[in-house]
């Protein structure tokens, strides 16, 4: 259908919003599909009452107490889930005394806090805050933290994590694939003890015991492996003249979800460009925000007090089939050096 224009409207989306109106994008397919822009006389979030399940949610994940926080035999805790993805928090503080293999799905570890090593079939990888670690389904691994106060957000997906098609902006955009780290083989061949592999399927554990260390891979080849990228190596694209939709910040795709990384960046400076907040009904997705660092607040920032930079790093998981959940963790001054630099 040719785009229709009715009443008071802006000729271009996100530019030259009519005086006294609030633009809201009503769109399909996560900012790729059909859309309409509604010009409201009031902010769409200007409610005075909200009843029922559709209300925005906020969770203080620091209060979760997964059993792996104090017990090396413990496990992460799940706090949200649907048919496509399940979100867990792990606070593992001690090396796992067993190996783990997830047959229920692929896993994406986001390291919010902590340093250490993760041993895998393909070899070990070190980890540090800001790391995304992709663990394909059924990879055998073991987390060996070096620090005590650790925090991992784990996204378990029914389908694998892929990189987005970067289209017209080219494959070096967002991050150069050269910053991806993959493990080198490092077999544990001199480990003369029994090892248990715990395999999770349908949320139940099966246990396999070997008289040797099962991470005995002396070499590997192929295009299916463990890999990682750190958030600091993601360089967001931006436009000073036009608001870019959240999909411009996509880092991973699955069949049922999108993971985006929002990093410190200048905001729009053109006099006519839409400022945040960007009101939208992303009707085919629900959104979960996890605040990693910084002082940006999606919902409280206004044109009156807006700063010219987003001084924060956070990720969103946009999950196909519609849920929008926000999680905020503020560290008011922690990104100041980033801004100053």
């Amino acid at each position: 259908m040719y785009p229709l224009k009715k009443g008071k409207f802006a000729p271009q989306a996100h530019v030259g919003i009519p005086e006294g109106t609030f633009e809201e994008e009503h769109g399909r397919k996560g900012f790729y599909g059909k859309s309409a822009h509604l010009y409201h006389a009031h902010p769409p979030t200007g409610w005075i009452r909200f009843e029922g399940k559709l209300r925005p949610h906020l969770f203080d994940l620091n209060k979760l107490a997964p059993s792996d926080c104090r017990d090396a035999e413990g496990v992460p805790v799940a706090f949200l889930g649907n048919d496509d993805v399940t979100l867990y928090v792990s606070r593992r503080s001690q090396p796992m005394p067993f190996y783990f293999r997830n047959a229920d799905g692929d896993e994406l570890y986001f390291v919010h806090r902590g340093k250490g090593i993760i041993e895998t079939d393909f070899g070990p990888l070190t980890f540090e805050p800001g790391d995304y670690i992709v663990l394909p389904r059924a990879v055998t691994y073991r987390v060996i933290p070096e620090t005590q106060d650790n925090f991992f957000l784990i996204i378990q997906s029914r389908t694998e994590f892929d990189q987005p098609d970067k289209g017209l902006i080219g494959h070096h955009a967002l991050y150069d694939p050269g910053v991806i780290t993959t493990p080198e083989p490092k077999p544990n061949l001199d480990d003369n003890r029994e090892w248990e592999v715990r395999i999770k399927v349908e949320d139940e554990l099966s246990k396999v015991v070997y008289p040797f260390n099962p991470l005995d891979v002396v070499g590997w080849k192929g295009d299916l492996t463990v890999w990682k990228i750190n958030m600091r190596d993601i360089r967001p694209i931006m436009s000073h003249r036009a608001h870019l939709p959240p999909s411009a910040h996509t880092t991973f795709l699955t069949e049922g979800a999108v993971v985006c990384s929002f990093l410190p960046r200048p905001l729009e400076q053109d006099a006519e460009a839409l400022r945040v907040p960007f009101f939208h009904r992303n009707t085919d997705y629900d959104e979960f925000l996890f605040y990693h660092d910084g002082d940006f607040s999606v919902r409280t920032i206004s044109s009156r007090d807006m700063r010219r930079c987003i001084r924060a790093a956070f990720i969103t998981v946009r999950i196909r089939r519609r849920w929008r959940i926000s999680i905020i963790r503020r560290r008011p001054t922690s990104m100041r050096s980033c801004w100053t630099d």
Binding site: T45, G46, W47, I48, F50, K53, L54, R55, P56, H57, L58, F59, D60, L61, K63, L64, V77, A78, F79, L80, G81, N82, D83, D84, G256, D286, R299, I319, R320, R321, R322, W323, R324, I325, S326
Partner: peptide
């Protein structure tokens, strides 16, 4: 649960750490 087609569920652990009145914090302060 926020959708009727493939709903996401707040699991019991999530319910325990949810701030139930969060929605009200979006309202303009008078």
């Amino acid at each position: 649960m926020l959708d009727g087609l493939n709903p996401i569920h707040v699991l019991p652990a999530g319910e325990q750490v949810e701030w139930q009145e969060y929605w009200a914090s979006w309202m303009d302060k008078k």
